[in-house]
Simulated scan of single mutants.
Amino acid sequence: MLRWLDREVELTRLEHDFLHRLLDAPGQVLTYERLHLEVWGNQHLGRGSDIHSVVRRVRRKLAEVQAAATIHAVRGVGFRLTAA
């Protein structure tokens, strides 16, 4: 569950785990490799479409609850959570 002020939206396990990792390190860039290992439990392989799919869904859900945070992509490196 993602809750911001009086709004809430359901998260899948992957969405929850991904967002939780970013929340543990606000402003810090987490690499594709680290996120893949900590969220999916395996090595990052391929183009990262699985990560990008989760990011897209979490961004949409952050917008739904009008959260004051956003996920920024760092091209070729990974993602970070920052204040909107």
Rank of each mutant, 00 (worst) to 15 (best):
M1H: 10
L2A: 03
R3D: 08
D6N: 13
R7T: 02
V9F: 02
V9L: 09
L11Q: 11
L14P: 06
L14C: 10
H16G: 12
F18L: 11
F18A: 05
F18C: 06
L19I: 05
H20R: 14
H20A: 11
L22Q: 04
L23V: 14
D24F: 07
P26I: 01
G27L: 03
Q28W: 03
V29N: 01
T31R: 02
T31Q: 01
Y32P: 00
Y32F: 12
E33M: 07
L35E: 02
V39G: 01
V39D: 03
N42G: 15
H44N: 12
H44S: 09
L45S: 06
G46C: 09
H52R: 15
H52C: 05
S53D: 14
V54M: 03
V55C: 03
R56H: 15
R57A: 15
V58Y: 02
V58R: 00
V58T: 10
R59D: 03
R59H: 11
R59L: 07
K61S: 01
K61Y: 02
A63K: 13
E64Q: 07
E64L: 10
V65D: 03
Q66I: 06
Q66T: 08
A68P: 08
A68L: 13
A69W: 14
I71Q: 00
V74H: 13
R75E: 15
R75W: 06
G76I: 05
G78S: 01
G78W: 00
T82G: 14
A83D: 08
A83Q: 14
A83P: 08
A84G: 05
